[in-house]
């Protein structure tokens, strides 16, 4: 018992050194060496200042931008408070929220059916993507607001639509931040 207790103390210290410090610091070193950009969060610079991370969602509410999904992270897309709404499917709060969003979207694009991801929060609250259907739904509004042709917008959407990984893993998706950044490069038609 006493012998094993002494071993336990030393064993904890030695293995903490190896697995709690040497291992993660070693991985950090290798990661910084080989995958510098990715290991640091794929931050995007615009006009010399950081404007976001390619893979972290950001809120957009103006009609000229593609909107991401609703977010439950903090006040919305707060990466220091990631998380979902955790609302049950039978929770009135969820139903009310969705109802409100649906009404708003219907007024934007009457007649079109509303892709479900546009009115549901993601698990992380930081989802950088929307479904191609959700992008398609927003094309008329964005085109209208920016005064550019829908097809031009559609072309951009296509450019930022990622297919499934290796052709079969996951789902096709559109990166909202990248798309919006590119949109800003496109001047209105008139």
């Amino acid at each position: 018992m006493k012998k094993n207790l002494i071993i336990a103390v030393w064993f904890t210290l030695v293995t903490t050194m190896i697995f709690g410090l040497i291992y993660p610091l070693g991985v950090t070193g290798l990661a910084q060496l080989f995958f510098r950009e990715r290991a640091n969060g794929q931050l995007v610079e615009k006009d010399g200042k950081l404007v976001g991370s390619r893979i972290i969602g950001q809120a957009f509410t103006g009609p000229g931008y593609f909107h991401p999904r609703p977010s439950a992270a903090g006040t919305g897309y707060d990466p220091t408070a990631s998380g979902g709404s955790n609302l049950a499917p039978t929770n009135k709060a969820l139903l009310e929220r969705v109802k409100g969003d649906v009404q708003k979207l219907q007024s934007e694009n009457p007649g079109a059916s509303i892709p479900v991801d546009l009115v549901t929060t993601s698990g992380s609250g930081l989802d950088p993507d929307i479904s191609p259907a959700a992008a398609e739904f927003q094309i008329p509004r964005v085109a209208r607001a920016r005064g550019i042709h829908e097809d031009e917008v559609r072309g951009l959407v296509k450019k930022y639509t990622k297919d499934r990984d290796l052709g079969f893993l996951g789902e096709p998706r559109v990166n909202v931040l990248e798309l919006n950044l590119d949109l800003d490069q496109h001047p209105p038609l008139h």
């Binding site: 979902g84 955790n86 892709p115 479900v116 549901t120 993601s122 698990g123 996951g170 789902e171 096709p172």
Partner: peptide, 18 residues
């Protein structure tokens, strides 16, 4: 579900995973 979206109960789910 369609070619453009995974559909279903998307509350709390990420688009890339569907």
């Amino acid at each position: 579900a369609s070619a453009l979206q995974s559909g279903g109960n998307m509350e709390g789910k990420e688009v890339r995973f569907g």
